[in-house]
């Protein structure tokens, strides 16, 4: 099993295989993995709103490794908290739009893994680490119950902003949609069809909660 095999399985079949041992650097054959990820980036960008950010190989490769190792840690229960800290390194580069989108190509699968890990051991160090990662990469964790600050970097880019709103609406994620900056974007996306397209969102803002009647 190489990292390329793992990515190929993930992107073509939707299921993955992991080994119990750490993957040797030689099996993380970067050129092959990067070629796979770049091809997927080209295909996925066709589906993104506006012009998707360019491919960032460092961020894409980091995220692919992160996902593989997180999957290993989720199923190999004898690996302890130290292994989590050693294997799951945070991204060292800047969170540019290119990095956010390129990492999202594989990080978008992490919410399912987090859900699985929480089911296995809610208090696990892996769960805690993934929740921290969820706050750092909000675009990839829409729909989950970890809601961090409003992702300014995501909202600053037209394509990422629209994709973020798409995902919030698609996941019916009211926790994120109620954040004021995000709510404006969701309202603009739904337009005058909010009651038809997402009635719960419409109800959220049409029902007065703390209104005071004037004298």
């Amino acid at each position: 099993m190489t990292l390329a095999d793992f990515i190929e399985e993930l992107l073509t079949r939707g299921d993955v295989t992991v080994t119990s041992e750490p993957m040797p650097p030689t099996e993380e054959a970067q050129p092959v993995v990067l070629a796979l990820l770049q091809r997927y980036h080209t295909q996925d960008a066709q589906q993104q709103p506006y012009t998707a950010p360019a491919f960032d190989p460092d961020a894409a490769l980091w995220a692919a490794r992160y996902l593989y190792r997180a999957a290993q840690l989720a199923v190999v229960r004898e690996l302890d908290e130290t292994a989590v800290q050693v294997w799951l390194q945070d991204y060292a580069g800047a969170l540019t739009p290119e990095a956010v989108y390129s990492a999202d190509l594989t990080l978008r699968y992490l919410p399912d893994l987090l859900h699985l890990a929480k089911g296995l051991a809610p208090g696990d160090a892996l769960v805690s680490h993934l929740q921290t990662t969820a706050r750092q990469w909000p675009l990839s964790f829409v729909g989950g119950d970890i809601v961090g600050e409003v992702p300014v970097a995501v909202l600053a880019h037209p394509s990422l902003r629209a994709a973020y709103v798409d995902r919030i609406i698609g996941a019916r994620d009211l926790r994120r949609a109620r954040q004021p900056e995000v709510a404006e974007l969701v309202r603009a996306a739904l337009g005058r069809y909010a009651a038809e397209l997402w009635p719960e969102f419409e109800d959220l803002f049409s029902t007065p909660t703390n209104a005071t009647e004037p004298d």
Binding site: P49, Y50, D166, I169, A189, L197, W198
Partner: peptide, 8 residues
């Protein structure tokens, strides 16, 4: 299509 919300 390039700029429209996906739900539309």
């Amino acid at each position: 299509a390039s700029s429209a919300p996906e739900i539309r």
